[in-house]
Design a protein around this nucleic acid. Sequence first.
RNA 1: GGCGCCGUGGCCGAGUGGUUAGGCAGAGGCCUGCAAAGCCUCGUACACCGGUUCGAAUCCGGUCGGCGCCUCCA
Length: 515
Amino acid sequence: MQVYDTGTRKKQPLFADGATELSIYVCGPTVYDHIHVGNARTFAMFQALVNYLRFSGVAVKYASNITDVNDKIYAAAATRGMSSSELAKQATEWYVEDTTRLGLGRPDMEPTATGSMAEIIALVEQLVERGLAYEAGGDVYFRVNEYREYGKLANRTLDDMVAGSRDDLDPGEHKQHPLDFTLWKGAKPGEDTSWDSPWGKGRPGWHIECSAMAEQTLGAEFDVHGGGIDLLFPHHENELAQSRGGGRPFARLWMHAGMLEAGDGSKMSKSVGNIEKLCDALDRMPAWQLVLFYLSGSYRSPLSWSEQGLHDAQVLGTRITETLRRSQRYLATVQTKGVGEDDSFADSTREWEGIHEALRDDFNTAEALKELNGVLYDLNTDVDEHANTQLVRNKRKAILEFLQVFGIGALEPAEVDVTAEAQALITARDTARAKKDFDESDRIRAELEALGYVVRDTAGGTEVINSEDAPEGEGAAVVGDDPDVVPDPDPDAEPDPEDVISAEAADGEPAQVDG
RNA sequence: GGCGCCGUGGCCGAGUGGUUAGGCAGAGGCCUGCAAAGCCUCGUACACCGGUUCGAAUCCGGUCGGCGCCUCCA
């Protein structure tokens, strides 16, 4: 498997020579509010990658941090009239709750800044000892001039950055170079948390937290460091400088997820309404829909947050469910015979070939979805052509495995609990239909719908499913309805939120997702 | 201004030096009492201008447009 490495700007083998295990660190959120769907994209894609690797038999150690000490938390806590630690605790719960709802599972380790304070301080001390950092006015700064490779990850030079900065760089009261960044900040008035350090009471800078947490969870050297592309500079550059400067090999590869943005190319802005919280999105759609939406584009490319895209994801999910239901029905009704005609003999190897090929090339989930669609198509065709049931079972297995890997098992058709009353109605309706008494048949169908069933007349006989499992709109019709009266689709279904939604806070400052 | 990414058919969104992406939406059809599901058929896209090449949407240069990032503090 190969992935695009930001550090070398090339696709690189994911595994080090001879390695069979992987360790992955991904920058998680700063906890001061609910995360939004842009943040969630990054988390979902990396978790999906981990799940896929495990499905492929790879042992993965996956860590993703929770930044619970940061400027943004102090600021937000003040606004809310609560203490920063209270807010961090609350927002951590929100984060865990919201991302768990995605259904993809959780990282193995979720270190916090507050839980890594000793490691952070130790690392800063080492940098000071090595001459890569200096204390000034109660703060400790990293000395970028002393780290020769500063800027290499993000592909920029100190000179370029100083000369070509968008804004005038603030030389800083105590800084030796305008790009020197804070490792430790002395406690300031209004900040309600601080920790003892060799430089007095204070708290860690944003970047050093991740260096320490990554090392604490995965060791001094690990395989992949991930995060949103907006964190490339300065956050990841600084992490690398700190850890490498401190003598650690640090991450071997850097993977960056693209931003979620508006489809009309509108500028990122602070305008209201351009961000949808993950919890809100999950309140209005099933998790599988959001996950399929994320998977519909390559993780590295920008992806447009649009109602159209969400609709497409919904349709795909429905197709998956319907295909499984259809094939299940086929297996239940077809006369199976012969040895090995059993799920336990199903072999999905062949169906996975195309999917593997796609995913092993830089985790191309869009391509994988195309391959999955091919499996769905083949399975439907098999059913149409009354193919060997083993072929059907093989394909079903592949699809079910796919659902499991991507945490969308909810798409598996639900069991239908057909009550005796319902069964009687079905039988009565079949009788009526046999007599071509369609008025009676439709009347009974309405009765079944009142009981919460949607009726489908299939080649294999009458089938009912629970209304709540039926695709939107199906079964809404009532006998006697004018057939011309169809519920209007949303007349102005425009792409909803404009503007980029990314690892960026509502106020446009790049600090929601960090590490 | 610097660094980077990108401009694909109505929409989303892959990919490749010469071969159908896929899906959604739309039209027609098969099946079907109706509905649902499934299947079949239909669009010959790749910002613009040059160049390289037998051949480029795919490589190079330029133009235009979009996007991301450009510390901390304030």
